[in-house]
């Protein structure tokens, strides 16, 4: 049992941020909101420091690519948890692929450092103000962002596999 409910959480968020909370849904009982990217740090800080909510744990930051959504191609997804209240929250911020910039969350959660580097590594999201924004998992020489859907998943540099043996 959650000490606070999703409805209460959403009400508080709407009170505090108003129209900056664009939409909300409840997939599998977990509150999932879409926000204006400009308020992300304020929102994380507020959730972290609120006397009741106490979202002190950043479970994950990840990215996603929706090539068909015009000017909302890239999405940064934050998963938060309030250990004390036993409740989780998912925050989505959509960014245009032409200018994928969002403020870094490292000022609120130190653990965001590596997660943001990973999101940068795979989706090319620029986290403004990040102390060390460089690739973390892939080779430094890589010149593209592999999980964007504009690239083939296969290694484009390989020469030894003949197409005819692989049904291409």
């Amino acid at each position: 049992m959650s000490a606070i409910t999703n409805e209460f959480l959403l009400e508080r968020l709407n009170q505090e941020f108003g129209a900056k909370v664009i939409s909300a849904e409840l997939p599998y009982g977990m509150l999932s909101i879409v926000i204006d990217p400009s308020v992300i740090v304020d929102m994380l800080k507020w959730l972290h420091e609120d006397k009741i909510l106490k979202f002190r744990f950043l479970t994950d930051i990840c990215g996603s690519h929706y090539p068909d959504l015009k000017d909302k191609e890239l999405c940064v997804i934050y998963h938060l948890q309030s250990m004390e209240n036993n409740i989780r929250l998912r925050i989505k911020a959509f960014l245009p692929v032409s200018n994928p910039e969002i403020q870094t969350a490292t000022s609120v959660y130190s653990s965001a450092n590596w997660m943001e580097r990973e999101t940068y590594d795979y989706y090319g999201v620029i986290f403004k103000g990040h102390p060390n924004l460089k690739r973390i998992l892939n080779v430094d020489e890589m010149d593209y962002f592999p999980l964007r859907k504009e690239y083939p998943l296969e290694d484009a540099t390989r020469t030894d596999k003949e197409d005819q043996y692989f049904g291409r």
Partner: peptide, 14 residues
């Protein structure tokens, strides 16, 4: 020997 099933951006193809 060849990258095996991991025909992907992160794996050395042999």
């Amino acid at each position: 020997s060849s990258g095996g099933i991991f025909d992907t951006y992160s794996v050395l193809q042999g």
